[in-house]
Amino acid sequence: MPSRSDDNAIDKDPIDKDPIDKGPIDKDKGEHLPHLRADGAPPRPSWLPRQRRGITPQMIGRYPDYDVLENADTWDEMTRGVVLARLDPPGPLRFFEPSEEATLRAFCDVTTGQDEDPRVPVAESVDAKLADGKLDGFQYADMPDDRDTWHLVLAGLDESAHERFRTGFGQCRLDEQEQLVRDFAAGRLSGGSWNELNVSRAWSVCMRAILSGFYSHPWAWNEIGFGGPAYPRGYMRTGALNTTEPSESRGATQEDPVGTVRRESEEFPG
């Protein structure tokens, strides 16, 4: 399993001094949510607690003591087989050409916000889906087959990168890559390979595969605190707010532990 390289380590301080709000982020108020922030952008991940148990992508998450894989022995055999296979070391690419690899990896990284190990191997998951021809069952009348769409998109990203930044997409700086992806998402790229595509639809074809690759991985489930497969065990505690199963763990909070202990002893004396 990839380990986190220390020179890239994120700020260990659990409470980020947020550059916009100039104070700690209050999760209960949703101050981390892009819609509710002045710049519409997410805070740096350094406001998050550091993962103590279980692997998450980039070791960031909101459930520092949760590892969905600890429940794997309660899953049915078929489900366990399918999910655990995603942890196997990814093999070489089968569908994409070596010349496409750098662009593919950079594109998958930027669209999923992955900037260091441990990474969910999204590029390999997309590659496997296309190599196995496991397509989604529909093709827009004004678009080529999904497999051709992917080749054209990677070529298009490279062409646009050369045009704007005089280098390949994979070699661009992160902010340059983000700028190109922002334009791709908005359907604003044109010329060359892009002219053979409906650009907005190409974005949704690519993102479908990328999101499915990322959020089918148990590391991503750890990051978001998802309970995971629950058969045959099931869930019992669907009721009152904030109730958890024995196998779930609560999200991290920024409350002052001393204050909580004091308040609880006042509310529930004796």
């Binding site: 981390h32 892009p34 997410p42 991940p45 669209t111 916000g113 993102m207 999101l211 978001i224 999200g251």
Partner: peptide
């Protein structure tokens, strides 16, 4: 989350908020 216009780091932030 994507359909509302969020990808990359913004999407991850909304995704972490799933629960």
């Amino acid at each position: 989350v994507l359909a509302d216009g969020h990808w990359g780091r913004a999407m991850r932030e909304y995704m972490r908020d799933y629960n």
